[in-house]
Amino acid sequence: MTTYPFLAVAIEGETDRNRLASALGVSRKLSWEEPLILAPTTLAQMENSRFDEARVYLSSFGSAVFFNCPDDAVEKFFDLLAQRTTAAKPLRPTSYRERYALRINREEKSTVANDLATIAQGERVYLDIIAYVLAKSVALEQLEALVDVVFDRMEEIIARLGRGELKVADSELARTAATILDFRYRSISHIMILDKPDITWESEEADRFHATLDNMFELRQRYSQIRQKSDTLLHTNEVFAGLSHARRSARLEWIIIVLIAVEIFLFIFDMMRH
C-alpha cells in the first residue's frame, strides 16, 4: 500500500502555458484543457514518466498541482521557473492551497473521500483527473475570496447610502464593475467549470471517477454561487451608478436653473438701469 500526496496552489493572474512552454523549449502548442507537465527540479516536460515520479501540472485555470513533491518544492519550483523563463511574466504562488492524496491498495475497494482516493492499481489517468479537479477547485477558492472582498466593499457603499451619502465616484463604480466582470470571465472562460477532460469521453470508469471527485469538491455548486453573487454585485453596482447619475443630473439641472435666473435678473436690472 502506497500513498501519493497532491498539493494544488493558485497562481496570481493568468497563466500563459504556451508562452512558458516555448520559453522552456517545448514547441508543441497545448490545448486549453491540457496541462503543461514539468519536472519540479529540472523543468523538463514529462509526458511518458513513471507513475510515482514527481511532477507539476500547470493548468490554464491559474493553478499548479504538485504530485508526490515535498512541501518546500513549491517555492523552489517557482523560483527556478522565474530564472528559466525571464522573457515571460513570472508566476507567483498565492496562499490558496488544497491538499489531496491517492492511495494504491490492491486489497481495498476503490473509494473517493474528502481528502483521499483509493484505487486498486496505479494508472496515470487517475493522477491526471485528480490534478484537473484540484486545479479547478483551488482556482475557484481564489475567486470565492475575491468575490467576498468585493461584497465587503459593496457593503461599505450601501452603509454610506443608508446615511444619505450618495457621493460614489464613477471611477470606483467602474473598478467594481470591471472586477465583477473579471470574475465571470475567469470562471466561465478560464476555469471552464462545466467541461471535463477528454479521457472521460473514452473511459466510463474514468468518467465515474471524475464525476465523483467533481461532486466531492462541489465544483458546480461553488461555480453557481459565484455566478449568483456576481449577478447580485452587478445589479447593486448598476443601482449605485443610476443613483450617481441621477444626482449628477439633478445638480446640472439646478445649475441650469440658477444660470437662467441670473440671466433674467441681469436682463431686468439692465432694463431698469436704462
Rank of each mutant, 00 (worst) to 15 (best):
A177I: 09
I158A: 11
F267S: 06
R163A: 11
E12K: 10
F183A: 07
M271R: 08
V138E: 06
F265T: 06
R248I: 04
E238V: 04
I264V: 07
I180K: 00
M154T: 14
T232F: 12
I256K: 02
T2H: 14
I226N: 04
N48T: 02
V133Y: 05
G25D: 01
D152R: 15
E263S: 04
T179V: 11
V168M: 04
A246N: 14
E238Q: 13
A64P: 02
V150S: 13
R55G: 01
I268R: 02
A145M: 06
D79E: 09
L259N: 03
D207W: 05
A131T: 00
N114P: 00
L143E: 10
A87R: 07
S171D: 09
A10Q: 00
V74Q: 12
T232Q: 11
Q45I: 08
A87K: 10
V258C: 08
Q142V: 00
R163D: 15
C69I: 07
V168E: 02
K229V: 01
R273F: 07
M192K: 11
Y223F: 15
K196Q: 14
H190E: 14
G164K: 00
E172D: 10
Q121L: 05
I264P: 09
L146R: 13
P35W: 05
V149G: 01
T42D: 01
A44K: 09
A54D: 05
I226Y: 01
A117L: 13
V65D: 07
S49L: 10
R247S: 12
G162Y: 14
R55E: 08
L38F: 08
P40G: 08
V262M: 12
A39E: 12
I119Q: 00
H274A: 13
V150Y: 06
L80N: 15
R186N: 03
Y57D: 06
V133H: 02
V150L: 12
D115S: 06
N105I: 04
V56R: 00
V150Q: 10
F209T: 03
